[in-house]
């Protein structure tokens, strides 16, 4: 049994198809990332999986329970940090946590005990009596995570958990996610930050325009396209594009002033062609290097398709 299962999820808003038959499955204890640009359909997917939105088609399952047939049962197993959500600004840190505990039907005793633990782990103990409106953005995000954890969920959903945070706060949250995973919690997060996905996810689904365009662990995704190399060359003068096109015709390349990058499988052939170009145009080549594509480049290539 999978912790989370998306089968053929489909959702449209008017003419916009936000999520177009998306399927994937997250194993227990895995950190799974949904990576994609803005408007890709990440939030809509999360909302369908967490029972906030009803899919037009397809099914969402948490621990084998259909989220839309048994919403209360499925939702009791999960913790959610929605995108750009806020705790209640007029309630204290403690009251925000109590509220969520009550929503899960926990007893007052359980709530008190768990709050004590969470305040320590999330470094909010000193702020426990402050109103949420007075918290910094990093603290507010940690409070939201604490609120998602108070029910001791088996699966944690985080929609863009680090977006808009400073580097240190973001780091704290990433560390926390890894340690939760170590403790056996399944994590499904979304991000548009490739490095983040590469650093903390066991597996990543790349989503664009409502479609999953690639799925695998971050290293695998790099390997899949690695027969492509990147060749980068620097010249002493800006390049003339028409003339260059004559030599590099069949290749995918980008010119940026004196810089040239070419995607190729056989760098030797590109170098020969560039040398002919240098001879005929009189520019000088200052440096040349090849590299494996970074995760970011993989992402951009997949998304552009």
């Amino acid at each position: 049994m999978y912790a989370v299962e998306a089968v053929n999820l489909y959702k449209r808003f008017g003419d916009i198809v936000a999520v177009d038959h998306v399927s994937f499955a997250v194993k227990k204890g895995e950190v799974f990332g949904l990576l994609g640009p803005n408007g890709a359909g990440k939030t809509t997917t999360i909302r369908m999986l967490t029972g906030v939105l009803k899919p037009d088609d397809g099914t969402a399952k948490i621990m084998g329970i259909d989220v839309h047939e048994e919403p209360i049962k499925a939702k009791s197993l999960i913790g959610v940090v929605p995108e750009e959500a806020n705790p209640y600004p007029d309630l204290t840190v403690r009251d925000n946590l109590t509220l969520v505990g009550m929503l899960y039907g926990l007893t007052q005793g359980d709530i008190e005990e768990r709050i004590r633990g969470l305040l320590k782990v999330l470094d909010l103990y000193k702020a426990r009596s402050r109103k949420a409106r007075t918290l910094s953005k990093g603290m507010r995000q940690r409070l939201l995570i604490a609120m998602a954890l108070i029910s001791e969920p088996q699966v944690l959903f985080l929609d863009e958990p680090t977006s808009g945070l400073d580097v240190i706060s973001a780091r704290k949250i990433r560390d926390l996610i890894r340690s939760l995973a170590k403790a056996g919690v399944t994590v499904l997060l979304t991000t548009h930050n490739i490095e983040e996905a590469g650093a903390i996810c066991d597996r990543v689904a790349i989503i664009n325009k409502g479609h999953i365009v690639a799925l695998g662990n971050p290293d695998e995704l790099k390997i899949k396209t690695s027969k492509h190399m990147y060749l980068l060359a620097l010249f002493n003068k800006p390049l003339k594009e028409e003339e260059l096109a004559h030599y590099l015709g069949p290749y995918e390349y980008r010119v940026n002033g004196r810089k040239l990058s070419v995607i190729c499988e056989d760098p030797g052939d590109v170098v020969e062609r560039l040398l002919s170009y240098v001879k005929s145009s009189g520019v000088k080549m200052i440096s040349i290097q090849t590299s494996q594509p970074s995760f970011e480049e993989v992402f951009l290539r997949l998304v552009r398709r």
């Binding site: 909302r47 939702k75 959610v80 806020n86 209640y88 939201l144 609120m147």
Partner: peptide, 11 residues
């Protein structure tokens, strides 16, 4: 205040 979705995602 963006607190609504925080409620809707609970049981």
């Amino acid at each position: 205040q963006r607190t609504l979705e925080m409620l809707l995602a609970r049981p």
